[in-house]
Write a protein that binds this DNA or RNA. Structure first.
Lengths: 136, 136
DNA sequence: TTAACACCTAGGTGCGACACACAGGTCAAG
DNA sequence: CTTGACCTGTGTGTCGCACCTAGGTGTTAA
């Protein structure tokens, strides 16, 4: 049986991550009746490693919970795993497009501002730099 | 004097956004003594538009608060505006690199899995698809 | 006058994945 | 028995709203 710090070192994650996984029900350690400390099975190390592996593929903790539940009930999680990652691929494409657009807006703004002086508040504009940029 | 819904329509944002800006102190409406309703000045419409403009350039509400405070105190916000956007440009580069890497990991995984069948839980692996992927 | 109804309000909570803070417990060395 | 390093569980903060709840408002219709 492992304590929080022991399992966190074995699985190479922070103790806070382990505690978080417990809080959201991904891990369900027993408790030391003497002091209430969490006590994990050695198998939980594998579980934590699985969680990190899945997170590395973009799965959210909530997804991972479902996957583990499926597996635990003897059902194959593979169909939902494929479905979820397809969704994430699409969502991430959208996000990337947004962030790329933002990046361009920021770089264009910075470039434009290089030829503009700092301005003192004049009662009209809050910041003439920001307000000089096109809306979109 | 404008109510929440009136200012939200004028500035083309949701009423919840307006309420949020009030909660974090970006807007400080007066109150109708009869019912406690928020009452905004017509100038607050400009302020909300400024907030959205700044948000569109990647400024966080906290940044915007500082910018407005500077301006309100008669100090030029321009120096910090330039500084903040430079930081955001760097941070966003990092984020983009991470998301691009994630995207590749996800696409590679999905491709690899196309030649793999769904597996039933066998007591060893939680999901053999996820566990078959290289860690990084 | 009153009832119905659409629309509005303030403020509480939830989201995601932890990090951080806090007050206190544990344990080996001296 | 004390010091000190290290550990514990739990509460809160992050970010920008969206959603929820319980109730108020205001216009119209009977």
């Amino acid at each position: 049986m492992l304590t929080v710090s022991e399992i966190s070192k074995s699985a190479n994650v922070t103790a806070d991550s382990v505690r978080h996984y417990v809080r959201i029900g991904l891990l369900k350690p027993e408790r030391n009746p003497d002091n209430g400390y969490k006590l994990f099975k050695t198998d939980d190390v594998k579980k934590v490693r699985f969680i990190r592996q899945a997170k590395g593929l973009g799965f959210k903790l909530n997804d991972i919970k479902k996957i583990i539940n499926h597996s635990h009930k003897g059902e194959s999680p593979c169909p939902i795993v494929r479905k979820i990652i397809e969704q994430h691929i699409e969502e991430n494409k959208t996000k990337l497009a947004e962030l790329n657009a933002l990046q361009k807006r920021m770089e264009n703004a910075l470039k434009k501002w290089q030829s503009m002086p700092d301005g003192e508040p004049d009662g009209h504009a809050i910041c003439h730099l920001i307000e000089s940029v096109n809306n979109y």
